[in-house]
């Protein structure tokens, strides 16, 4: 019950951050990615603010015996690079470039009740599902429950 409440509150803070930062506006995201055009560097400040916060705090948190609600930290330990990581990042980057939408802002933007955004989110869920099926069919072992992110 506590975990559910914490997840809801964290989600609300995250969604508020996406809206305040302008990440929910695909035109703004494309403006940042458009390095050869009329470049808008704003989103570097979003990543900067978020990464400085995590970089300064995660190292201390991860030294605790475990998270406050008990159990163990579910953090990936892999360090190797493989084609799935690189190929996935290229495919994701291509989709991000043509739409200006990554998963967080896409979900958050459902708040603005645009049917086209719902279409994007449905396609995102379908694509995610297809990737999961693909993983199952190529490997006899199920995929790890904890991904990198």
């Amino acid at each position: 019950m506590m975990a559910q409440l914490v997840a809801l509150i964290s989600g609300i803070i995250f969604g508020l951050g996406l809206a305040v930062s302008g990440m929910v506006n695909p035109a703004k995201v494309i403006g940042f990615l458009d390095v050869t055009g009329d470049w808008d560097p704003s989103l570097a400040f979003v990543m900067g603010g978020a990464v400085v916060t995590t970089a300064l705090t995660f190292r201390f948190v991860l030294k605790w015996p475990g998270p406050l609600l008990g159990g163990a930290f579910q953090v990936p330990s892999r360090q190797d690079l493989d084609m799935r990581l690189l190929g996935g990042a290229v495919i994701f980057g291509a989709g991000w470039g043509i739409s200006g939408l990554c998963p967080g802002p896409a979900f958050a933007s459902l708040a603005y009740l645009d049917p086209k955004m719902a279409l994007f989110v449905l396609a995102l869920i379908a694509g995610s599902y297809l990737a999961r099926l693909n993983i199952f069919s190529r490997s006899s072992t199920p995929p790890p429950v904890t991904a990198d992110g």
Binding site: G88, A89, V90, F92, A126, G127, S128, A131
Partner: peptide, 20 residues
């Protein structure tokens, strides 16, 4: 939008993560 959503969904699952 449909193509973008499919690519973003597929790529983030295959590559185990997105912007966040």
């Amino acid at each position: 939008l449909v193509l973008g959503g499919l690519l973003v969904g597929f790529g983030t699952q295959m590559g185990s993560g997105c912007t966040s």
